[in-house]
Simulated assay, not measured.
Amino acid sequence: MSTPASKIVPFGSGGRIVETACRSLSIAASGLNALEAKFAEREFAATFLRVIGVIMKVRGRVIVTGIGKSGIVARKMTATLTSTGTPAIFLHPADAGHGDLGMITPDDVVLMLSHSGESTELGPIIHYCKRFAIPLVAITAQAQSTVAMAADMCVLMPEVEEACPNSLAPTTSTTVQMALGDALAISLMEMRGFSADDFHKFHPNGRLGAQLVKVRELMAAGDDVPMVREDASLLDATIEMTRARLGGTAIVDRNGRLIGAFTDGDLRRTVTGKQNLTEAVGRSMTLTPLAVGPDELASEAMHLMHEHNIMLLFVCENGRLIGAVHMHDLLHAGVA
């Protein structure tokens, strides 16, 4: 039996494979450009703004749904919305008719993804939204489709060329869906004034969370902060450094304000110079050492350490010494 001719030529040369990969990326980029161009259309931009307005006002959650590849995009969109301050949950259409429709409340809004707009699995969700007056937002490329016609608001996506040589596998169309989801989430994020602080509350673990940790969360504080007065002896300063094991000590005035620092390096230079250990540490200290505030990001503190080739950074609030942070503490916490 003969089979239909295919555009795919197997076992191509390396050059042909690279050419294919680049062509796929070029087609995807064209799709993204087409989506960006849609925002220049008054109707598309107005619809997008209405969707933003509805989501901003909703008292419940954004229920995101889709089937197949659109369902995978919907899951990612849900995760992005949730992590950037917009409560969202994914509803699988296959489970909707088996009890999961109950997760949709009158306070929610449903965001439905379907490139064709004709996925039969979405039917129960559409009927439920109509029956209970749940706002339904469609994201589809077909204006006359079932999903588009049933929706209260329809974000009409551009018709794009799929990167698949047989024009079968969803490729560019899902890339464009993903990009619209990101645009939606970031627009909502800025509308809410969602800060790096807020982001850290939702991402306390992992490398991303480490970059958002504040200095006060990692610094030594209280009795763990090495400090002496400027009239303390070099011996006393050395003992204080040894006690705290941070490789240095702060020098403070009578009001607890940071005025200098004395480190392992300063101690080595002092010993080499054969100074008397009874001399005041103020004569050998480094003046106006670097310091950060407690609410600075730990990643910024790390950058400052790298830039100035230091291992110890003091933490001050209103000029008063309140803590110290060592590079090893930052590295141990995963800050980079």
Results as ranks from 00 to 15, higher is better:
11 F>S: 12
49 L>N: 14
260 G>M: 07
193 G>V: 05
287 L>F: 02
224 D>W: 01
183 A>E: 03
52 I>Y: 09
32 L>N: 03
174 T>Y: 06
331 L>T: 12
95 D>C: 00
126 I>Y: 04
255 N>W: 06
259 I>W: 08
173 S>G: 09
262 F>V: 06
123 G>K: 12
198 D>E: 12
58 V>Y: 00
16 R>Q: 15
293 G>Q: 09
287 L>W: 04
209 G>W: 02
322 I>G: 09
167 S>T: 05
10 P>H: 07
151 A>I: 09
9 V>F: 03
316 C>W: 05
86 T>S: 09
286 T>Q: 11
93 P>L: 00
63 I>M: 15
274 K>R: 15
79 A>T: 14
113 L>M: 07
2 S>H: 11
117 G>F: 08
199 F>G: 05
207 R>D: 02
282 G>P: 10
203 H>L: 04
16 R>N: 12
42 R>W: 01
215 V>L: 00
78 T>Y: 09
156 L>Q: 06
18 V>I: 15
7 K>N: 14
182 D>G: 08
320 R>E: 13
81 L>H: 07
329 D>I: 05
34 A>H: 00
156 L>W: 01
108 D>C: 11
286 T>E: 07
41 E>C: 10
28 A>P: 00
257 R>I: 02
240 E>N: 05
133 A>I: 02
334 G>C: 06
17 I>S: 11
115 H>E: 03
83 S>T: 12
18 V>E: 13
276 N>A: 12
37 A>L: 09
311 M>A: 14
189 M>H: 04
174 T>D: 05
136 L>P: 08
31 G>Y: 01
176 V>E: 04
89 I>H: 05
131 R>A: 15
17 I>M: 14
270 T>C: 14
4 P>A: 11
173 S>W: 01
69 K>D: 10
240 E>A: 08
5 A>I: 12
58 V>K: 15
316 C>P: 05
324 A>T: 06
238 T>F: 13
201 K>D: 06
41 E>N: 14
59 R>T: 13
108 D>F: 04
218 L>K: 02
242 T>Y: 02
20 T>C: 07
25 L>W: 09
235 L>G: 01
140 T>I: 05
190 E>G: 00
165 P>D: 03
207 R>F: 08
192 R>I: 02
172 T>A: 00
278 T>A: 14
